[in-house]
Design a binder for these strands. Sequence first.
DNA 1: TAGATTGTTAATCGATTAACAATC
DNA 2: TAGATTGTTAATCGATTAACAATC
Lengths: 209, 209
Amino acid sequence: MKIPSSSIPRISLYYRAILSLEAVSVTSSQQLATLTGCSAAQVRKDLAYFGQFGRPGSGYNIEVLKSELKKILGIDRKWEVALVGVGNLGSALLTYRGFKTQGFSIKCAFDNDTKKVNKVKQGIRIKDIDELERTVKSKGINIAIVAVPRGAAQGVIDRLISSGIKAILNLAPIRPRVPKGIELLNIDLSIELERLTYFLRQSANPLRG
Amino acid sequence: MKIPSSSIPRISLYYRAILSLEAVSVTSSQQLATLTGCSAAQVRKDLAYFGQFGRPGSGYNIEVLKSELKKILGIDRKWEVALVGVGNLGSALLTYRGFKTQGFSIKCAFDNDTKKVNKVKQGIRIKDIDELERTVKSKGINIAIVAVPRGAAQGVIDRLISSGIKAILNLAPIRPRVPKGIELLNIDLSIELERLTYFLRQSANPLRG
DNA sequence: TAGATTGTTAATCGATTAACAATC
DNA sequence: TAGATTGTTAATCGATTAACAATC
């Protein structure tokens, strides 16, 4: 069955929602809908793509659902992540505690700035970019976050892929080329801001400023 | 005419693509397609939502297109942005140079940590969160970026809205409630990483680690 | 004129919503 | 049993792709 790609981030939302429901043992598509801003039909549809987790008449057992959603999302295990680029944004990601609570752990960090190399941040000794291939291969890391300047991004991503990285979260403002079979997600903050200004421009509201 | 919301970030991509084409005076939907990874039909469709910018047989004049796309995206002017939360992520955004090149300028920054208040970063004196309403109102700012911890996010967003903010980029890992007419975009890095682990989990590739 | 390329319409594809029989 | 709620099918909606007449 074809699963809409848009259903995956919603599964993450449902998972977070049930984490906030520790006191009860059962929930419903309606409750999950209210908690996440999705429709109840959407919740049931999304869950049904992956199995029959509920009981008609009573709803979804929270412990069952929690465990199933973790399996679906692949977070029923720890994942080690490589970070490339320890500038302002990279440093922020290194200290971001939200990753750890979801089972992600930044295990190594690289930069090409010799002033940063060998400095320790959050218990991670920053490595020279030259050590990227060796380290990623030897640690068997599958996921990388790229937080380097625009001009360096494609080169870094090529090197990550040749080191065996299979999934990349790219924060540099380019659309890198990657071969088939590599999962790439781009987060471009300026593009997001432009979605906002498009809206403000269209808006009927009399804008100030 | 109804414009698909997914076409807006593509317009941003086309705009960036033509910025890299300074040497030539004309481009085509095929060239923009190659540069952005979209299809040529998609490029023409997206542009046609907003007007007739090209000439059959010859293509799109770059200067004309550049100016039209800026107008569409609302970046034919400067925008002042308020930043709430000057932790690691907020500091990174304050120093991010990519915003300025697209016409965005972080004009004020707030934090509730008295150790940070009155410190100057990137030429911005960090203000106490208590000054949020007064400052945003008096400066007539329409856009805010929220980079506070999960627990503080909804409260901050409520206050931003009551100060007149119309568009919010939220980086805290919650889905805030906002009234109709307020544009909200959520960027949740853990959810993005979970899209990657979903893919790795599904992947036929024998994964290492 | 011949070749190129747009803008637009129709066809396809994919995702969401609504409805409801089956189940507890 | 009556009320609640799932899982699934069908209907709707929206976005993308293909095709091509019109234009330069």
